[in-house]
Computed example of a mutant assay.
Amino acid sequence: MNKTISIAIISAVVAISGCAPQGYSGKGGMTQYSITSEAYEYHYKNGFTGVDAMGWDANLQYVWSRAGAAITCGIKFDKKLVLSQMTKMYGQSDFIHELNGVDFHHLQSKKAEGFCTPSRINEIKDVMPKFEKGDFPKYF
């Protein structure tokens, strides 16, 4: 009987631990001093929203992240033009958009191993010409 109970308890523990969420919770990772690639990739896919937008417009974070990813993935675009379009749409200055936005996202995506997947490259190639025209999506 004791063996049966022990096996049942061990089985229950294994089953429960197998159901526990693995990895990043989806909130707060972008506020950390050292942002993990897992947190960055989560927000790249799902949006830099709430506290993870760090006080910036979530749609602007989307634009910054794709421009930064274009640099990481070696996709050519007119950076100066895109920065100018960001300034027209969102205010601030080209310098702020470059430093706080595009360059920040470039560094985050650069450290994520295997970041430049074919689907990401296709998405970036699709959106960058739109950004050059000042056509920024409003997903959030």
Rank of each mutant, 00 (worst) to 15 (best):
V127R: 08
Y139T: 10
N2R: 13
I121E: 12
S6P: 00
K3L: 14
S119Q: 12
K125C: 03
M89K: 13
F104N: 11
W64I: 10
Q32N: 14
M86A: 01
P137H: 06
L60W: 07
M54R: 15
I35N: 06
D103P: 01
D52G: 04
Q32F: 00
P118L: 04
V127F: 05
S25T: 13
F104K: 14
N46K: 14
Y139H: 12
N122A: 15
W64F: 11
D126C: 01
K88T: 13
S119V: 14
I75E: 10
H43G: 07
I35P: 09
S84P: 00
S25R: 06
G55W: 02
K3S: 15
Y62E: 07
A12K: 02
S84D: 08
I10F: 14
F131I: 05
C73W: 10
Y42G: 03
I5R: 14
I16E: 06
C116M: 08
K76G: 02
T4D: 11
I96M: 08
V127D: 08
H106F: 14
I71Y: 10
K45Y: 06
I96R: 04
D57Y: 08
V63D: 09
E132N: 03
P137Q: 11
T31Q: 13
G91T: 10
T4E: 15
K88A: 11
L60T: 02
K111V: 04
T87N: 05
E41C: 09
K130V: 01
G26D: 01
S109M: 09
W56C: 01
E41Y: 01
G68I: 10
H106T: 06
S34M: 09
Y40S: 07
Q61M: 15
T31A: 09
D52Q: 05
R120D: 02
P21Q: 08
G26P: 04
A69R: 08
P129L: 06
E38Y: 02
C116V: 10
S17V: 15
T87P: 01
N100V: 04
F136W: 09
G50R: 09
W64E: 05
S65M: 07
T4F: 10
D78H: 02
L83S: 07
A53E: 08
Y90M: 08
I16W: 11
G50H: 06
Q85F: 03
K3E: 14
Q61E: 15
N122D: 12
D103F: 05
V82H: 01
L107P: 00
M54K: 13
V63T: 12
Q92Y: 12
A39M: 07
A39R: 05
L60H: 01
I10L: 15
N100Y: 12
T31P: 03
A69I: 11
A67Y: 00
E132D: 06
G18R: 08
S17F: 14
M1V: 11
K130I: 00
A67D: 02
F136R: 04
A53C: 04
L81H: 00
A58I: 07
W56S: 09
F77I: 05
G134I: 05
T49F: 00
A12C: 14
P137N: 06
C73N: 14
M128S: 02
S17M: 13
P137V: 10
C73V: 12
L83V: 09
A39W: 06
M1K: 12
E113P: 00
C19L: 15
Y24D: 04
I5C: 05
